[in-house]
Design a protein around this nucleic acid. Structure first.
Lengths: 155, 155
DNA sequence: CCAGGATAGATGAGCTGTCAACAATTTCGT
DNA sequence: ACGAAATTGTTGACAGCTCATCTATCCTGG
């Protein structure tokens, strides 16, 4: 119908809108619940989760930023705040003088170990339980494909 | 296997992690592109998009907030900033003395009409083109189901 | 071996979001 | 009809994010 500014089809737009809306609603609830259940923000939680999932609880600064898809400046401020509260620490990197490892402190481990079970329960209750395993697999495939596709695209 | 703190299965966790990562990466790119292409933030964009999609470019304040799944305080600040720049205006509501309509101004229409085509192009290039129509339909169905499921859940 | 560029990360200013408290209606129970 | 409770939206303080800039280290070509 419309030649010049190729709009999305109504199916495409519906999919896009629903996807955005679902994510917004879901994250809204989960972040509020993390704050209510623990004394952490969602950002604190995911940083500690990634750190403690990794071997030794240590990840290079930029690798950590890439894992969660944040800009380095955001991660730097976040790590600074978490370090001030004693949840993580910076360690210098032997093989690269500029580099830094971020490590979870014992207090960090304790915080995530307390927060994780109830958070997982919320994720299950609000998200996982709404879907079949097949749908989850499909979602994983879709997500991985979009990620791979973006990594090939410029910008 | 593990009795007390029911963790997610590895498939469930993989789906969850991929989903989060994909959204973060995608939104990171899109928000940077909106800012680069127009003189608006992603928040400005979506508010104007919802307003101009609606009949008359007018939506009740809280309906608008619900449409994009924001807290009312966030919307209030956002509308305040946009009103200061002349993109939207507040109108009082005849049938409810507390209420307010938010309306897109001519400048708001102009801004979104300039920004929309290139934004849609980015959405298509980064997201839509990575998937088949069938996958998009599945994603829409999944999203709608999760939304419906959450609306039944407490909290 | 050294000059220029690339990479790792920190920092500060300014904008944006969150939380709690508030004012102004409207609605509801009795 | 009247007081309590709920709804609509605003506000201010503070926390968090973004962008540009900066330092320090590392790599690379000549």
């Amino acid at each position: 119908m419309n030649a010049t500014p190729r709009w999305l089809t109504s199916e495409q737009k519906a999919a896009w809108d629903s996807f955005i809306r679902m994510h917004e609603k879901l994250m809204g609830r989960l972040t509020r619940q993390v704050r209510a259940d623990s004394h952490m923000s969602a950002a604190d939680y995911i940083v500690l989760a990634k750190l403690t999932e990794a071997g030794g609880g240590r990840i290079r600064f930029l690798d950590l930023a890439k894992l969660v898809e944040w800009e380095k400046s955001r991660m730097s401020h976040q790590v600074g705040r978490m370090a001030k509260r004693g949840l993580v620490a910076r360690e210098e990197c032997p093989e690269d003088g500029r580099g830094a490892f971020i490590v979870a402190t014992p207090a960090g481990y304790q915080a995530i170990e307390e927060a994780a079970p109830v958070h997982v329960e919320h994720v299950r209750r609000l998200f996982i339980d709404a879907l079949t395993q097949e749908e989850l697999d499909t979602l994983a495939r879709i997500s991985d494909r979009v990620i791979a596709h973006m990594e090939k695209q410029p910008d």
